[in-house]
């Protein structure tokens, strides 16, 4: 479905800094965070709280560096992202299938559709006890939690995405004698994309939250586990450092920029500004 031209567009829009306005905004952002670290340093220097409550930036970065140096941090980021992508990928495939099925089969929508809405109202972390009882303290359990976190948000937005395809676009496929499969492949799948980006983002953030909670509680390796290790060692610098790393992972490797922004940009390019 994606031509090389499209791939180029993804890359160039995701990474290009041609635009001066964007360069300026990035510089301003860097200045903001530098200021924040300076402020932190000043508060630390004022010695309002003891250093085992509020460490300075220096020991925190030292801790982070130590864990980068010994490779544990990268292993943890890797383990966490692996769970995230496997779980989110599964949720994407299953959620899209449920959503498309609900949008096209009326009786399914009237039964399963309601259940999906109900499940979506469950905070995703509530799946954790069930996951532990079913799968034990295992990789499967944590991936299950990640899947359940985003599955319903994706299914709901996929269903709405299909429903939002103008009737005449689907009827056109019928006019040319398209089979059910051809209609899904050539009309339903591409046509639902403008409405699905929101659901993917929502699902991604739900999954992320339940993954962190899960790692914190029971799974070895991963950023959440490292955080819990810091607590056990009473090492506040490590805890704060890992929290900063988690933010960086989310913002830097995060979904918005790499995964969803190109999608939204593609939609804007094809559908025009009105759609995005």
């Amino acid at each position: 479905m994606l031509s090389s031209e499209t791939a180029q567009l993804w890359l160039s829009t995701a990474f290009s800094l041609k635009n001066f306005g964007r360069v300026f905004r990035i510089v301003r952002l860097i200045a903001f965070y530098a200021g924040l670290i300076l402020l932190w340093h000043l508060v630390y220097k004022a010695e309002i709280w003891p250093s085992y409550v509020l460490p300075g930036p220096r020991p925190v970065f030292d801790q982070v560096w130590r864990y980068i140096d010994n490779g544990i941090l990268f292993d943890s980021v890797y383990a966490t992202m692996q769970r995230m992508f496997i779980g989110f990928g599964l949720a994407f495939v299953i959620g899209m299938s449920i959503g498309i099925a609900n949008a096209t089969i009326r009786w399914l929508d009237e039964t399963l559709g309601g259940l999906v809405h109900g499940m979506q109202s469950l905070p995703s972390i509530t799946w954790l006890p069930l996951a532990i009882l079913w799968f034990g303290l295992s990789q499967t359990a944590i991936i299950f939690v990640v899947v359940m976190g985003s599955l319903f948000a994706i299914a709901i937005s996929a269903r709405d995405g299909v429903r939002n395809i103008p009737v005449l676009q689907r009827r056109t496929a019928q006019v040319f004698g398209a089979s059910k499969l051809q209609t899904i492949r050539y009309v339903t799948l591409p046509g639902m994309l403008p409405s699905i980006a929101g659901g993917l983002k929502l699902g991604w953030s739900f999954s992320w939250r339940s993954l962190m909670a899960g790692e914190l509680i029971f799974v070895t390796a991963g950023l959440g586990h490292l955080l819990d290790l810091g607590r056990q060692l009473n090492n506040i610098s490590l805890v704060m450092g890992i929290m900063i790393m988690i933010m960086i992972v989310i913002i830097g490797l995060g979904a918005d920029l790499l995964l969803f922004w190109p999608l939204e940009n593609w939609v804007r390019h094809r559908w025009g500004l009105a759609a995005a």
């Binding site: 103008p166 005449l168 676009q169 009827r171 056109t172 994309l193």
Partner: peptide, 11 residues
């Protein structure tokens, strides 16, 4: 069929 409008594929 040729419809009145909105029957082309925007993508």
């Amino acid at each position: 069929v040729v419809f009145q409008e909105a029957a082309l594929y925007p993508w």
